[in-house]
Design a protein around this nucleic acid. Structure first.
Length: 584
RNA sequence: GCACCCGUAGCUCAGUUGGAUAGAGCGCUGCCCUCCGAAGGCAGAGGCCAUAGGUUCGAAUCCUAUCGGGUGCGCCA
């Protein structure tokens, strides 16, 4: 039950009944919105209907507002309507509405708030896709968490979501990986390999891979022809790296449905070749040269004829090369084929969660999407700004060479999965993020994770307490849902329920905008409403949830508490954060 | 040089897709535990929404320019 959507329909119906005719065309009712007013004193709901419709009707907003208000007053669920400011219509609803909201939470349980927006449309969300050459480092965590939460959010909004990871197992970096692993293999066999040569991966994380090879194959690999051995090692090493990456992702509670191998698209007659051929037939590929970048021209610049994709006709800044001078495909060519593959799998939206350092790829991906799909599907990119790490206010210095770079595992092990996830989501994705390793472990109001989780734990605590104190009276959800919600007459209680009523609207808006952070902020606000009302019970004992003199009232209040815990749990689940029964 | 992102309280950030008197946390000042978890709550101070124009009933939000910060810029992945 989304009371905002519900009332938007009622307002539209009232407007339609007025039979107003603009001088030209039809009246556009789609711009009408019903929102919670900024100031609760204004009412429960506010609509801009009069202001958006006044112009085409050549009426004064306030006059139109009065007419609409009159129609709304006839609604039995409305207790008061007034016109304010430039033409806002403020609605005060009959308290029966709040009872219905609570009833709705009990009926739908964890599904309360689910949006129908997606309507089963197939969406592909690609995130993480780090190179399989080493463990994930801190820089990857934000994209991983945002992508995962976004996928959860879209699923909660009734999209048919596939979470996907592209394994970049075809490039030159895999050759480097295989060579590095071979050295570690020799090392594991007892040979002195000296220092790792420049250009190879020096990380200790490859030692276990070398050891595993030595254990499994003994010295036999040394005798194989180099080409054969190298090919084998590439596959072996990538598998091991992916095992490591999957374990890292598991630590963060991040999951994918499909791990797509780039390698499978290479080779004669494979996806890339096919896609390029198809594009040639559509005259989207040509041989040509690119102009050098303006301003500073690179020293070694020379004009070169290349195989180019006409991305600029689809909104990109310049055309992009598909084939390298050695005849192999560029990464971009793989991108095109991969997008085509997704399209063939029936996805209508292809979402990419990328780091800000990939901002330059947005236009070309969108261009490819338009070119390949002909407008039947949409490419959507979300960029995550880089994260700056701090410890107690001091920046954490990282250097690959000094071996002081921090892995995702380091961070999760130091501060825990929930704080990492919540903090990454407690920010708009395109805003910079300062992440303080010390602050996120503090269990205080300064730390929104604990504040929200504490809200959930506090609900559980109340229900536990009530079960003890109310001897012989059931406080199970089945019993609570039969209580008399109309007894919840206090301002604070109605404020909490009004907040609960916003949840479906928040979910829907967040899904539309692809902004999971909105859920995190909402959950904070809901927790705040709960904590605030709770504390009023200190000064006014009659407001406490548990009142052994009034079992009916107590049950109604416990029902509200239960509803709050449901929404907190539901929201935290979408964000991939635990909703604990108690804090430790 | 060009493209994209950002600029809101001392600090870190929200701001409901153009709406009413711009919000929260931290920090600062002062309060609230015989009482369901004080891991909390209440009150106060703090703002030229980077700057200058424009669009309209109405702009932190949209457009243009400028300043400041970040990211990227033909075969890397």
């Amino acid at each position: 039950m989304n009371i905002f959507a519900d009332f938007a329909e009622r307002v539209s119906a009232v407007v339609a009944a007025l039979e107003l005719k603009p001088e030209e065309g039809q009246l556009d009712l789609s711009r009408i919105t019903v929102e919670p007013p900024r100031d609760p004193a204004h009412g429960d709901l506010a609509t801009n209907a009069a202001m958006v419709l006044a112009k085409p009707l050549k009426m004064k907003p306030r006059d139109l507002a009065e007419k609409i208000a009159e129609g709304l007053r006839a609604d039995s669920d409305v207790s008061a309507v007034d016109v304010a400011g430039p033409g806002f219509i403020n609605i005060r609803v009959n308290p029966i509405i709040w009872s219905r909201v609570l009833a709705s939470v009990f009926e739908q349980g964890k599904d309360f708030g689910r949006s129908q927006r997606g309507n089963g449309v197939k969406v592909n969300v690609e995130y993480v896709s780090t190179n399989p050459t080493g463990p994930m480092h801190v820089g990857h965590t934000r994209g991983a968490v945002v992508g995962d939460a976004l996928a959860n959010l879209l699923a909660f909004a009734s999209y048919d979501v596939t979470r996907e990871y592209l394994i970049n197992d075809a490039g030159a970096q895999i050759d480097v990986l295989a060579k590095s692993v071979y050295l570690r293999y020799l090392e594991a066999l007892g040979e002195d390999i000296g220092a790792i040569p420049e250009g190879l991966y020096p990380g200790d994380y490859l030692k276990p891979v070398g050891k595993a090879l030595a254990d499994e194959f003994g010295p036999s690999l040394k005798d194989k022809p180099e080409e054969e051995r190298h090919a084998f090692l590439k596959g072996y090493a990538v598998d091991k790296m992916m095992d490591m990456i999957r374990a890292d992702l598991e630590l963060l509670n991040v999951h994918h449905d499909v791990f797509f191998s780039e390698k499978t698209m290479h080779g004669e007659g494979a996806a890339i070749a096919q896609t390029l051929q198809a594009l040639r037939e559509r005259d989207l590929v040509y041989q040509g040269t690119l102009p050098p970048p303006k301003g500073e021209v690179p020293e070694d610049w020379e004009d070169r004829e290349q195989t180019l994709f006409r991305s600029s006709t689809y909104g990109d800044d310049i055309d992009r090369p598909l084939v390298k001078s050695d005849g192999s495909y560029t990464y971009f060519a793989a991108d095109v084929a991969y997008l085509k593959d997704k399209l063939d799998r029936g996805f209508k939206q292809m979402i990419f969660v990328l780091g800000a350092d990939h901002g330059g790829y947005v236009k070309r991906l969108e261009a490819v999407g338009r070119a390949v799909s002909g407008g039947s599907a949409q490419v959507i990119c979300r960029l995550c700004q880089l994260v700056k790490l701090f410890r107690a206010g001091e920046p954490v210095k990282m250097s690959k060479r000094a071996g002081t770079f921090i892995t995702l595992r380091d961070v999760v092990e130091e501060v825990g999965r929930d704080p990492v996830r919540f903090m990454m989501l407690y920010r708009k994705n395109d805003a910079h993020l300062d992440f303080d390793l010390q602050k996120v472990t503090e269990q205080s109001k300064d730390n929104p994770v604990f504040y929200v989780q504490y809200g959930h734990a506090r609900c559980s605590s109340v229900l536990r307490q009530a079960a003890e104190e109310l001897d012989g009276i059931s406080v199970a959800p089945e019993a609570l849902m039969k209580s008399d919600f109309s007894l919840l007459e206090d301002e604070g209680e109605q404020g909490i329920i009004a907040k609960l009523a916003q949840w479906p609207r928040v979910v829907d808006g967040a899904a539309e905008a692809h902004e999971p952070h909105r859920l995190a902020f909402y959950l904070y606000e809901l927790a705040s409403a709960l904590h605030g009302h709770w504390s009023k019970g200190k000064e006014k004992p009659q407001l406490r949830f548990i009142n052994d003199k009034k079992p009916e009232l107590t049950l109604a209040r416990l029902a509200m508490v239960y509803a709050v815990s449901q929404v907190l749990a539901s929201g935290l689940t979408v964000l991939g954060v635990d909703a604990p029964e108690e804090m430790r």
